[in-house]
Design a protein around this nucleic acid. Structure first.
Length: 422
RNA sequence: CGGGGCGUGGCGCAGCCUGGUAGCGCACCUGCUUUGGGAGCAGGGAGUCGAAGGUUCAAAUCCUUUCGCCCCGACCA
């Protein structure tokens, strides 16, 4: 991508409307713009980061045996009445009427829709288990949308639903989803923690949350200093020692980005979503559901990973892996610069933001830092004259001067060292 | 939903108290100079002052109503 073709500018001044750091940086870096309270447009850079998050989620969900579906956001109210959530969900549920005054919900979640759908398709235990997922925009009429992308009224979510013929199988899938989620967050390059959780309005009796550690998090995680036990403080309000091993516990704030629930018959029973088991008996599906806040991950990643200069993207979700910054007039057209650009392109197709603008070096540095590209290839007169270039590592600030021809190999080696297995 | 704050060019703000027809910085456009950490000079374009009603010779400014946005709290992916 050439910067000269990118109309989105960074903001030098702090937007007054933003308080939390992820919101400020997302606005300043030109990732999003607000349309209404809790409703944002995603600009091209943000979409690139979102697609990377989604790609990792899709790979891991498919690897776990899930199949992608796409369910309606517009959902007739009678479905919700079957599970009593038309009332129970309260004012958080966006409700709309069509021209015939038939009422609908804008889906905040899809248990009703998927249960209805699967009950039409699956009649026998022989068709089970079935694991479906989707990535889609969700709606919640938040009492108070806030913190920018961390709590919007419209957001992108990956939700998955499992249908099993037995509780044992449902628990196996639940465990598999826990592992899958751990892999996803590891690959995203984010420090995270799985914790015991309350199951809230979704229901069920077994539930874990996946938290991204961040100083600004709204949630508090209590975790054991010795063993792996951890819990949401809401679930363990008074824990001063670990209930598993008795060691002291510590608390840290975090942002919830994933939640898995075992639902059992909570939705299948009231909706009459049954199948025939091996004995020929009609019983409800054993269900589980598994959510990840995709758009929230972007904000949470920034909350966890930024500094005074701007965003510090993990390599796995950076909109572009690296920026090439030719400094000074004519540098962007020099043959050795273009040759280097080509060789980086062949290493990482489409992953370079080429700052060919005719602006002063300081602006290129500031913008590259603010936007958080993991690598900056800096090409200034005094180095290029000698056949050299400089690579700056955004996260550490490390700078390496080396021959231009060696730059792709250095980038490749650095990424190999950082990226979790894929 | 309770408490607080704010709506004035794209962004950040001043002007409002004490009415007289809108200004500054950034960004943008043109020209010249400049080029390793958000350049300088000169010229220029851009605002129904959130909306509606009222008071007045005159309203960004005073009064009423209303909409929106932000923050804190209670509740939540």
């Amino acid at each position: 991508m050439k910067a000269s073709l990118d109309p989105v500018q960074t903001l030098h001044e702090e937007p007054a409307e933003a308080e939390v750091v992820s919101h400020r940086l997302m606005l300043r870096a030109g990732l999003v713009r607000k349309l209404a309270g809790g409703v944002y447009s995603y600009l091209p850079m943000a979409v690139r980061a979102l697609r990377k998050v989604e790609a990792i989620i899709r790979q891991e969900m498919e690897a776990a045996g899930a199949q992608e579906v796409l369910l309606p956001a517009l959902q007739p109210s009678d479905l919700w009445e079957k599970t009593d959530r038309w009332k129970a969900y309260g004012p958080e549920l966006f409700r709309v009427s069509d021209r015939h005054e038939r009422s609908f919900a804008l889906g905040p979640t899809h248990e009703e829709v998927i249960t209805d759908l699967v009950s039409q398709i699956i009649r026998s235990y022989r068709q089970l288990p079935f694991l479906a997922y989707q990535i889609q925009t969700k709606f919640r009429d938040e009492r108070r949308p806030r913190f920018g992308m961390l709590r919007g009224r419209e957001f992108i979510m990956k939700d998955a639903y499992s249908f099993s013929a037995s509780e044992a199988d449902a628990h196996r899938i639940y465990a598999r989803m826990q592992e899958t989620y751990a892999r996803i967050f590891r690959r995203l390059g984010l420090e995270h923690r799985m914790v015991e959780a309350d199951s809230g309005l979704i229901g069920g009796n077994l539930s874990h949350e996946f938290m991204i550690m961040a100083d600004s998090g709204e949630d508090t995680v209590i975790s054991c200093e010795k063993c792996v036990w951890a819990s949401n403080i809401e679930k363990a309000p008074d824990a001063e020692i670990c209930p598993v091993c008795g060691s002291p516990v510590t608390s840290r704030t975090a942002i919830e980005v994933g939640h898995v629930f075992y639902l059992a018959h909570k939705y299948s029973a009231p909706m009459g979503a049954n199948f025939l088991d091996a004995a020929g008996k009609e019983i409800p599906f054993f269900m589980g559901c598994y959510g990840i806040g995709v758009s929230r991950i972007l904000a949470a990643a920034i909350e966890q990973s930024h500094d005074g200069q701007g965003i510090v993207w993990p390599v796995s979700i950076a909109p572009y892996r690296n920026a090439v910054l030719p400094l000074g007039p004519g540098m962007a057209e020099r043959p050795e610069v273009l040759a280097l650009l080509d060789s980086i392109e062949s290493l990482w197709p489409g992953e370079t933001y080429f700052d060919d603008r005719e602006v002063r070096p300081g602006m290129k540095f500031q913008d590259a830092d603010l936007r958080g590209f993991p690598f900056q290839v800096i090409l200034g007169e005094r180095h290029v004259e000698k056949g050299n270039g400089e690579v700056k590592i955004r996260r550490s600030g490390e700078r390496i001067v080396l021959p231009l021809k060696d730059i792709p190999a250095l980038l490749s080696a650095r990424v190999q060292a950082i990226l979790p297995e894929s």
